[in-house]
Structure formats: C-alpha cells, structure tokens
C-alpha cells in the first residue's frame, strides 16, 4: 500500500508501544493537527504508579486535549486518551471505555493485544492500529485480529525503533500494512 494513499474511513486510532515508545510519541505530538475526527488511544507499557505523569508529559507537547481514562468514560473524537497503568483497556460498542484489572497478558497490564482486539470488535474495518518500539510480542496477536476485520495495521520501522523486537514480530507474522519511521508517523495520522 502506498504511504500517501490511505483508503480508510478511520473511526479510531490506537497506538501501542513498550520500551522506547514514549520518545516516539513525544516526537510526533507537536506535529499533530487538532480537529481529527476520531479518538487517538494510547496503550503504553510502563511501570505501575498510581499517579502517572504521562498525560502531563504529553500535554506539554500539544494543545490537543490529553485525557487519562477512567472506567466508562465516553470515547470522544479529537481527543488523545491514555490507558491507565495496571488495567486492561477495552472499548464497548456503546461508545465508552471499560477497564479490567484481570490477569496480565504477555506479562503486561495494560496489554496492547487486549485493546487492539476489543477495538477491532467495535470499529471493524474503520480501525487503525500503530505498534511502536518494544521488547516483547504484545500487540502482534491484536494486529492479527485487526487485520481479520479489515482494519489497518501500521508498525514502526524496526531499524528505526529503539527496541525493534515488537514491530519485527508483527512483520514476521505478516500482520502489517504499512511500515513508518518515527518522523513519518505524525504526517500519516494527519492524513487519516
């Protein structure tokens, strides 16, 4: 698929990342254009801490509203959402977020697979998922589900990722439509 031809009616964008992904997001945030017609939902592995500073960190890089998700918050367009530490993030067909404190998946909570799979159920072929740098294979099964529903799967170019394993595994498992460098991601999102 050509990078500048995106034939998808995007209703939700989910970005999953682990080790080395926060820097990529800090880099792309200043270039995001406000007013996008879908939510951007970030599921990032990090240390558990009750008061996560990620939303503050991200808010400093953009004027777009960055929100920490609470259970049953409505999913709104034009907003950047951050999955809380220590919960899995699911999306209900009624347009609200649900949290789930059950067992870790891929040693992770939040698990990227869990959110990708849940979102694929709801948004089907109108979902775009981006998998960034990371040291485990979380997200790969999720991308498989996204693809099976005809959604779009994007990964960070492994040679460009701080920790290439996660995008590499996705490519190896043939679950990828588009491969982007870190400095191409903002422009990609702006075209959706």
């Amino acid at each position: 698929m050509e990078k500048d031809q995106i034939n998808i009616n995007c209703k939700a964008l989910i970005i999953g990342g682990s080790a080395g992904s926060i820097d990529v997001i800090l880099m792309l945030l200043p270039h995001l254009k406000a007013g996008f017609k879908f939510p951007i939902i970030m599921v990032l592995h990090r240390k558990n801490s009750t008061d996560s500073k990620l939303s503050e960190l991200f808010s400093n890089k953009t004027k777009i509203l960055v929100k920490d998700i609470e259970d049953k918050d409505p999913v709104k367009d034009g907003t950047i959402y951050i999955a809380p530490a220590d919960y899995h993030l699911l999306i209900e067909s009624t347009g609200v977020f649900s949290l789930d404190a059950s067992e870790k998946v891929n040693f992770s909570r939040p698990s990227i697979d869990v959110t990708f799979e849940s979102a694929a159920d709801v948004y089907q072929d109108k979902l775009v998922c981006i998998l960034l740098s990371g040291a485990n294979a979380d997200g790969v099964l999720g991308l498989k589900k996204v693809k099976s529903k005809k959604g779009m799967s994007v990964v960070q170019e492994p040679t460009n990722a701080k920790v290439p394993f996660m995008p590499e595994m996705a490519i190896k498992n043939k679950q990828v439509d588009i491969i982007l460098n870190d400095n191409e991601i903002a422009a990609f999102i702006n075209r959706l």
């Binding site: 699911l90 209900e92 649900s98 059950s102 799979e117 159920d121």
Partner: peptide
C-alpha cells in the same frame, strides 16, 4: 456486565 470484558473472560 460490561460486554467487552465479559466476552474476553
């Protein structure tokens, strides 16, 4: 129950 979570369980 929340549908998405229940379905997963």
């Amino acid at each position: 129950y929340s549908k998405a979570s229940l379905k997963r369980r």
